[in-house]
């Protein structure tokens, strides 16, 4: 494929059949009776309805994923093909990914003694084998398309230009937090569907990297500075002590001399 994989969701085409949900449950061996109104540990995607508009929630597979940047053990990583995948064996369960995800996607198995993170992995195995994701493959109306991001973005722009009455003039995911691999088109404003419009265009990992990259400097400069201060102060105290004892000696000698 030319460039990293991406998924284009066109909510105006969705008929709410739920085939993508079923295909996803089957592909990833998830339980057959997941919740129908939200994401949790039992599903990777969910089709919802607001007024007359169907829409879908799933991992956005950010270009610069916040979850992968905050994971202390690199259990979450973005592959070259595009999916953000998860290694449960590495995970320590700190849930920083859940805290940090601007879209609130990763879910947790709160009811288990040994829980793991659950989220869409963009059918990583299928994608590496050159296939489409299960949801894109099964969609009967083309509301979920799979392909290179450049191409999907071009399609999205063309559709908006061709049918300005059908779409709101916005591609969700084009610029959000530095851009995502999942792109969305809608006829209803995205904020009405519960999508955050205040995320900004800056990739969030940059916020912490500006601090993290300074650490080696802090350690080296701080170490030399503190060591220097301690040495100078110690040295001055030693000299003062020597001077005092020399003075004592001097006084004693004089007293002796006086006696003789």
């Amino acid at each position: 494929m030319d460039g990293p994989a991406s998924i284009l969701l066109d909510f105006t085409l969705c008929i709410g059949c739920g085939a993508c949900e079923d295909a996803c449950q089957e592909e990833h061996n998830l339980p057959a009776d997941p919740p129908e109104d939200r994401l949790d540990y039992r599903n990777y995607t969910v089709v919802l309805k607001k007024d007359d508009q169907y829409y879908r929630k799933m991992c956005m597979h950010c270009e610069e994923p916040t979850c992968a940047s905050v994971c202390p053990v690199a259990a979450l990583i973005k592959t070259e093909e595009g999916p953000v995948i998860y290694h449960p064996d590495k995970c320590i369960g700190c849930r920083y990914c859940m805290m940090a995800c601007p879209f609130g996607i990763p879910a947790y198995e709160w009811h288990k003694p040994i829980p793991v993170i659950r989220k869409c992995i963009m059918c990583n195995e299928r994608v590496s084998a050159g296939k489409q994701t299960a949801c894109a493959w099964v969609c009967p109306v083309g509301a979920c398309r799979f392909g290179p991001r450049e191409k999907m973005l071009a399609i999205a722009k063309r559709r908006i230009a061709q049918f300005p009455d059908r779409y709101v003039d916005y591609i969700y995911g084009e610029k959000e937090v530095g851009g995502t691999s999942v792109l969305m088109l809608s006829g209803t404003p995205f904020e009405d569907l519960g999508f955050r419009m205040d995320l900004g265009e800056q990739a969030l990992p940059e916020l912490t990297w500006t601090v993290m990259s300074k650490i080696p400097n802090i350690v080296i400069t701080g170490g030399i500075l503190l060591g220097g201060i301690s040495w100078i102060i110690q040295r001055r105290m030693d000299i003062e002590k020597e001077n005092l004892s020399a003075l004592d000696e001097h006084i004693k000698n004089q007293e002796k001399g006086g006696d003789a």
């Binding site: 905050v70 994971c71 690199a74 259990a75 700190c94 990992p205 912490t208 601090v211």
Partner: peptide, 11 residues
């Protein structure tokens, strides 16, 4: 298992 980008790694 290192990830120097993560604050949690530093912590």
């Amino acid at each position: 298992m290192w990830n120097p980008h993560s604050v949690m790694f530093e912590v």
